[in-house]
Amino acid sequence: MSIAAGARRRRLLPNLLALGIAGIWLFPIFWMINVSLQPSGAIHISGITALPFDFTPDAYLGVLQDSSFWNSLQMSLRVSLLAVGVALFSATLAAVALSRFRFRGRAAMVVTVLIVQMIPAEALFISQYRMLSGWDLVNTVLGLSLLYVGTVMPFIVWMLKGFVDSIPADLEESAMVEGCSRTGAFFRVTFPLLGPGLVATGVFGFLVSWNEFTLALVILSSGGNVTLPVWLQSFQEGQTGTDWAGVMAGSALIAVPVLILFTIVQKRMASGMVAGAVKG
């Protein structure tokens, strides 16, 4: 009894500190929701008030009635889904090759994956733009998706390789003893077990493409449809005397689905990200 009480007392200070920090970290998100629910004119007259107040969904309705928001949503979905589909399919092939086969050049390949992962878009966008403009793919879903495939592929390969590694090859071998072909063994035994890994990795790739700003800004530069992050940026600039409630409502509409998805898969992502480093 007294030991438990002592432990509790020893934890009181760290607990308070941790809660304080959690409050600081959460505040911007709270503030986004808070401001998005204010009547938009009121901010300029009486300043921002904190919840609770009689809130209004006006700002959200304003964004949802804006056709450019829906066009951008469609654009974001198309670019992200195409990029993730292609990247996931080809990354699975690469992950199986790197995990299940021993071949000449394999170690070099693993290192290449890790190094390519470090190349920032910011160091390449000029020539990527020139390349796509030469092929008439600027301002297209196809062009932007291709660049996103390159961006997310190394990381997806790395994560999937970890998932394939964790499924024992013995299972496939015993299926082959039972008379399955190698391909058949993979699809009947390993592939179903890979399901959760594929979902987590796919969600990750989707979120990266969904949130990406730099390449979208450069590639979708000359009018036409843009993705949601670029839309939010120009929505913010387009205001004279910024409509903060509207901007925050737009931010929330983009961010909240991401927060939900991300919370579901983050555990696998954090572990996948550091798996290589911990193993070494």
Binding site: A18, L19, I21, A22, W25, L26, P28, I29, W31, M32, V35, L207, W210, N211, F213, L228, P229, V230, L232, Q233, Q236, W244, V247, M248, G250, S251, A252, I254, A255, V258, L259, L261, F262, T263, Q266
Partner: peptide, 25 residues
């Protein structure tokens, strides 16, 4: 768990939304 969840929210916020929030703040 409270602290971890808070951190995950900040981590997941799309960067342009995050900048918009801080610009307002």
């Amino acid at each position: 768990v409270t602290l971890q969840l808070t951190l995950i929210f900040a981590w997941a916020t799309p960067v342009i939304a995050a900048v918009a929030i801080w610009r307002l703040m």
